[in-house]
Amino acid sequence: MKLSFLPKDMDWTCELCRQKLQPGFVELHYAGNVFKVELPVCPQCSRVLIPEELAVGRILEVEQLLEDK
């Protein structure tokens, strides 16, 4: 899995912390596998944004690959 999935539009703010999301590292887990990827993250509470294109694109693909492994 390619490591960076930062969307073009990074203009998102965490409502709780009033902090702008910043590039950060996140672990994605599935079927016993772990991927470390770069995504927009709230610097204070670690809330993550999984953009739509990523969810319905690469993530879905990898999920299906892992399910058939």
Binding site: H29, Y30, P43, V48
Partner: peptide, 15 residues
């Protein structure tokens, strides 16, 4: 406006 979903789980998140 839009909806999406995934099955992978997100763990942690550090800047």
């Amino acid at each position: 406006q839009r909806c999406w979903s995934h099955r992978m789980t997100v763990v942690g998140g550090t800047v």
